[in-house]
Structures are given as structure tokens and as C-alpha cells.
Amino acid sequence: MLEWLNQFLGNHPFVSILDILIVWFIIYRLIGYAKQSRAMNLLQGIGLIIFAKFLSQGIGLQTIDWILGQVISWGVVALIILFQAELRKVLENLGKILFRNRQSSRNPSEELIEDLKKSLLYMSKRKIGALISIEAEDSLAEYIGTGTKLDSEISSQLLINIFIPNTPLHDGAVIITDFRIASASCYLPLSESKLIPKELGTRHRAAIGLGEKTDALTLIVSEETGAISIVKNDFLHRDVDKEELHELLNKYLFTEVEKDNQENENSHIIKNLLTMLRSSKGGKKNE
């Protein structure tokens, strides 16, 4: 069968175009992912080293060319060791594209959004600090394990009670997974970004740090100002009001329709490609 496909499509000009489009799409997605993480600086450094390698080779700087060759040869191993977390995330995202995780793509109910809104607005009015992370596609199991496991249903009363000052669970983050409170008083990774304004505290840095590593949605209530903020994919929405809070929760939590639309669009593209192949095949037969 592979030999038949090779004979049928091997010399077809459309296959070459499809090959270029696939490579372009992969590079495009990698650059898009790199812009949302520290990998962008890494790609720029790699590009500079490769450029210097070709330049030194062309000019005839043999010593520099040999050194850069060694750096590139051993750099692959070093990158795998240093960026194993980022590589794991890339592979996980690739698996999500090929095999959709239907268990985690369920839509939350209106009650969940109402409970989140009610608790956030209550704590905001009274300047009760809060940090709530909602698991999406990326697993938060390693962070759930750092806190006190609850595995309880979500309610505004419970969320408010957890963050009341001087209670055992108020310090840290609440993590919600599968529309249940999985754990409280959890430790989240702090962002080391220098772009974060200095007036933002540890809660905001933890929320942005989690957004840099996962696709979780994190809700923050400032203990100093009572302002509500939302972090998604290291993007920070600061000082959101009641209406904006409702809009953002709907936008980030109700994702099933958007995923279905994207799948339909991908299916439409594949059908068009197959149609072009069949049409081209029919044209050859007519000739």
C-alpha cells in the first residue's frame, strides 16, 4: 500500500505544496508557542549561533567554526535537560491536537460561574485576598498535591469560608478540577518575569507563573485593594468590574463551542485537500 501511495502521489506537484504548507504550519505554531514562554529568547539565541556558524564557515574562521560546531552538537543534549518541562508541554499539546481530551472539555454550568462571581465580588468588597485556579487541558496534579485535598462540590459559601483570614486554609490557592474543589492552600510557581508591575504581590506572581506553565484560568482578589484580576496563559486582566468578570468567565470557561468550530474548520480544510487530490487525479485520467 505504501508503494502504491508513493507511485500515485510521489511525483504529484500538489504533494510538494502540501509538504511546504505542513512545514510552514509547524514552524508557525512553534513560534506562536515560543512567544508565550521563555522559549522565544531561546530560539533567538539558537538562530544567532547558527548564523554565526555559517558566517564563520564562509569567512574561513576555522577555530570559531569548530567551537560553534561543538556548541551546536552538545547543545541539543543541554537543551533537552534544561527545557524538559517545555518539551513535555509541546508534546502534550501535540497529543491534544491529534487526540482530543473529551473528559476535560465539558462545559461548566451556569451555577459554577454564578458561584465564582458571588464569592469573588463578596471577597472583593471586603478586601479578602483570594487565589483560585481552574484546571483546563493541562493537568494541575503536581500543584494539587502541595495543598490540602478536599474533593468537594463548589459553592460560593465554601470558597468564601476558605479564604477568611486566619483560617487554616486561607493561605495559598484553591484548585478546581472537573468542576469540583480538588485542593486548598496549594503552592503555585512564582513568575520570574521582570515585566510584572512592582505593585502586584505574590498572588499575582503565582497566578502568572501558573499561566506560563499551564493553560489554567486563575482568579485573584487583592488583599490590599480588593481588585479582581484574571490570568489566562500568562495574560493578566487587571481590575475587572462585575460585567467584565462575567464576560471573561464565560469566554474562558465555555470553550466547547469554540473547539467544535475549530474541529469543523480543520475537517473542512482536509476535505478540500482531498477534493483537490481527486480532481487532479481525474484530470490526469482524462489526459
Rank of each mutant, 00 (worst) to 15 (best):
Y33C: 03
I72V: 15
L68C: 07
G32Q: 12
S109P: 00
L42P: 00
H237L: 06
K117Y: 01
S16Q: 08
T275E: 02
G32M: 09
D171L: 09
N6D: 12
L112P: 04
K232N: 12
Y122R: 00
L87W: 08
F54K: 05
L245N: 06
G60N: 07
K198M: 09
K35R: 15
N101R: 11
K117D: 00
K89N: 10
G282N: 13
R180A: 12
A78W: 08
Q84F: 13
K127S: 06
S222Y: 00
K89A: 09
L210S: 06
R88Y: 08
L87I: 15
A182H: 02
Q36W: 03
A34C: 11
W66M: 12
E92M: 09
E256I: 03
P108D: 07
T63C: 00
S185G: 14
E258M: 06
K285S: 11
G282Y: 03
E212Q: 13
L169F: 15
N101A: 09
S193W: 02
D151P: 02
A216Y: 02
I20V: 11
L42F: 14
Q157K: 13
I208Q: 04
Y122G: 01
E142N: 08
H170D: 13
E192I: 05
R205N: 09
I228S: 03
A34E: 07
C186T: 09
F163H: 04
N233I: 03
N266A: 09
K198G: 03
E263W: 05
L249T: 10
G75Q: 10
F25V: 06
I154F: 00
L61C: 06
E258P: 01
F25C: 07
K125S: 06
V15M: 14
I49M: 12
V23E: 08
K232T: 05
V23P: 01
L98H: 05
L79I: 14
L158D: 04
